[in-house]
Amino acid sequence: MNHIKAVVTKIETIDYLSVVSFEADNQPLRMMALGLNVPIEVGSKVTLGAKATNIALAKNLSGMISMSNQLNCVVEKLNKGSLLCSVKLSFNDSILESITTLASALEMDIEVGDKIVALIKASELSVLELES
């Protein structure tokens, strides 16, 4: 599970459904949630979570894309398996991991030091912890 430290900037709620906006080192993030049993409010510091298998990668990204969360990262390390590839990314002070097929990693010609965008759908981001 990837951990991203963020601050709540906005909470929009209709019925049982909420969309929560965050900021993590000047980059905006958004999360869909059902109910909000974690007592967050604007200004709350939280740890967000996203599974490595739910993080997609993009290089030279252009055009419109419905991924709410686009984090600018730098490739730190590659671990190529026979079928899959783990890509470790530095995102400000933290390290994120994306697991992709090896074929994708090769097609994109990902190398250590590359500037890359980590993409996470709003439905795949969750609040793991509220910092007291």
Binding site: N37, G49, S82, S86, S126, V127, L128
Partner: peptide, 20 residues
């Protein structure tokens, strides 16, 4: 946390497959 689908279980085994 904000995850709404939570079940309790016993971890039986962790199997390595490629890099996961």
């Amino acid at each position: 946390g904000s995850q709404k689908f939570s079940l309790t279980g016993e971890l039986l085994e962790i199997i390595k497959a490629d890099i996961i």
